[in-house]
Design a protein around this nucleic acid. Structure first.
Lengths: 363, 363
DNA sequence: CTGAAAGCGCTTACAG
DNA sequence: CTGAAAGCGCTTACAG
């Protein structure tokens, strides 16, 4: 595999600027019309340029009735000449503006995030909402990103993780719907509950004759995750004594490494339950390298139900979460909070979406 | 593989509302304080509730100097009691507000989109910009989505595809930077040019002794894409006579289907160049099913450089795009246009980022 | 068909 | 430390 080579070679073929001498600071902005202010044109500028009043400009710009074709054209021409763009603030102040939804994801590079975002975006678009996105895994200053989101939007939905209490405090009165909350629910939340799915899975393992399952877990505390503990419980109740390995991050690399070690140490392993699909993909890779057949020798199961799981061979059996349902419940909750059903100091409110066993080829 | 089972079972454990009798319409919103208007509280409401003037409220809310601790506390208490949130429009009108970047992606479920979005988001966050996202592949009404984006943001960046001219027209004076433009550049654009990468790739195929390459292309016109034609040219100039198959969408399924057919019809195929990584992943799957070894029997190459390509076996050789560079050039261009370097009627402006051969295991 | 007035909710000088 | 005034850029009634 090639190393991280420098990929960039950028050629600039900038047709417009950069050729002539540098203009003095006061002329830094190309003046479109002599004598015009350098800042953005306002409705006022257009009105005086076209020789009409401000509300005539409004009529022309917004295609309203009650304006003659000729004045309309004159106004539009003036607007175009001035590069006029109505201010979203001026307009929003009087119209109320579009509803805006702030979506917090943890890392867009983790394939789970875009699948969730797609679900939220689709639903939001259908309702005429705009969506502002913040990635707290990517942003250097995630505090600022979250705060900005709160200021620019009507409601915030997303993965707040361990810092939820702090961020919710910072967000103040903004309605917040946490997705898959880690701790206590302060405002609104959509829980994603694997309990039943794990029971289904455990039954499936028994049914298919698995004898020595292993759990490849992940958590940043070093101790098993709650999901991992549920898996362990479900297996123990069925008479299994599974090993549990805990990685400090749920990446495919960690999944591969832990699976490789498990295969080496416990020759009789015949099933691996991974914390999520990404780790399970790593497990599949490790099996391949070790010459272990999946699902013949070892069954492999992930959690999340990513589309990604259908692109590999064998395709990945998984505890799937219906992200459209998560998005639906989240927006529904958010709308309710916005309407005042659960004010700031009101009781927390939550919904639950359950994982479901999605049998594909790997188990 | 399991069919599209219904994944959702949603249980509502809504703690707050829905228990008591339905309130009459006029009381639909829980009144926090008797006699208060049902709409959102304004700075005015807080001022009169706290018995101070509006700018004292501003001071308290924004943590400014020149306010006594006691009045500050009183104001903050009143604000909390009223669930007061400063209006983004009122504030934006006077402060100018945060810069906002509108990002247009084509389909968040295609792994290319989130990788691009992550790059743009990271850069935007570093500069203190907010990002609004529109998915024109997902949105029912993509026209509305694009227009809304133009109204709410300072600049629009993204994949406009075939409808670019129409949307740019609709966006009016909003600075627009197209990514990988399909047609003529009307405003600003970052081109992604595979020419050199394809030459590199063709040389690599010659060097590794490939004799019978096949191109698995995609385009919605039925005719080869420009990328496909470049591949064909490069191979012909080296004495190859490659078959070209054109799918109507660049999906892994199509990649698999076309590869399967090619492997069946042309037994001597020893390399497949796919339109993109997603198709190449399908090609890998088809090879596996056909019992064909990659890269031993057939070499497989994609285009894009998705992280996904490292999760499969063998890992995918690809013509990679440096999306951080794309994002950087796009924001740079956008900033320039915003500063007035390329006004509406000015010359179009563009940059170029080149693909680069990224050798992994599959070729 | 067009314009003078009022006001949306906030902040920024400026007085006191 | 606090408030009266002005104004940000727009639209919505209301007159003419």
């Amino acid at each position: 595999m090639a190393g991280p080579a420098r990929l960039t070679r950028t050629e600039v073929t900038d047709d417009a600027a950069g050729a002539g001498p540098v203009a003095p600071a006061s002329l830094g902005r190309t003046p479109r019309t002599v004598g015009l202010p350098t800042s953005r044109a306002t409705i006022h500028d257009v009105a005086s340029a076209a020789g009409v009043s401000r509300q005539t400009v409004t009529r022309a710009m917004n295609g309203l009735y009650g304006i003659s074709e000729t004045t309309k054209e004159r106004v539009l021409a003036a607007a175009a000449a001035l590069d006029y763009r109505p201010s979203r603030f001026g307009r929003g102040l009087v119209t109320g503006g579009d509803r805006q939804l702030g979506l917090v994801v943890n890392d867009l590079r983790n394939p789970y995030s875009p699948e969730l975002a797609a679900a939220v975006l689709g639903l939001a678009a259908a309702r005429g909402w705009d969506v502002m996105l913040a990635d707290v895994g990517l942003a250097g200053d995630s505090d600022r990103a979250v705060q900005a989101l709160g200021q620019q939007t009507d409601v915030v939905v997303g993965y707040l993780g361990a810092r939820a209490p702090e961020w919710i405090e910072r967000l103040g009165p903004v309605p917040v719907v946490e997705l898959d909350p880690a701790g206590e629910v302060l405002r609104g939340a959509v829980r994603i509950d694997p309990t039943e799915g794990i029971e289904e899975l455990a039954d499936h393992l028994v049914r298919t004759g698995v004898r020595h399952p292993v759990i490849v877990d992940a958590s940043d505390t070093g101790r098993p995750s709650s999901r991992g503990r549920l898996m362990l419980d479900a297996l123990r109740r069925r008479g299994y004594l599974p090993e549990v390995a805990v990685a400090d991050a749920p990446t495919s690399e960690h999944g591969a490494a832990m699976a490789a070690r498990a295969l080496e140490r416990f020759r009789r392993v015949d099933a691996v339950l991974a914390f999520n699909d990404l780790m399970a993909l790593g497990v599949l890779a490790a099996c391949r390298r070790a010459g272990v057949d999946v699902p013949g020798d070892v069954r492999v199961v992930g959690v999340d139900g990513l589309a990604l799981g259908t692109l590999v061979a064998p395709t990945l059996t998984t505890l799937a979460v219906d992200l459209d349902a998560v998005a639906r419940e989240a927006l529904d909750l958010a709308l309710g909070m916005l309407a005042g059903e659960s004010p700031r100091s009101g009781a927390a409110v939550q919904r639950t979406v359950r994982h479901r066993l999605l049998l594909r080829e790997s188990a």
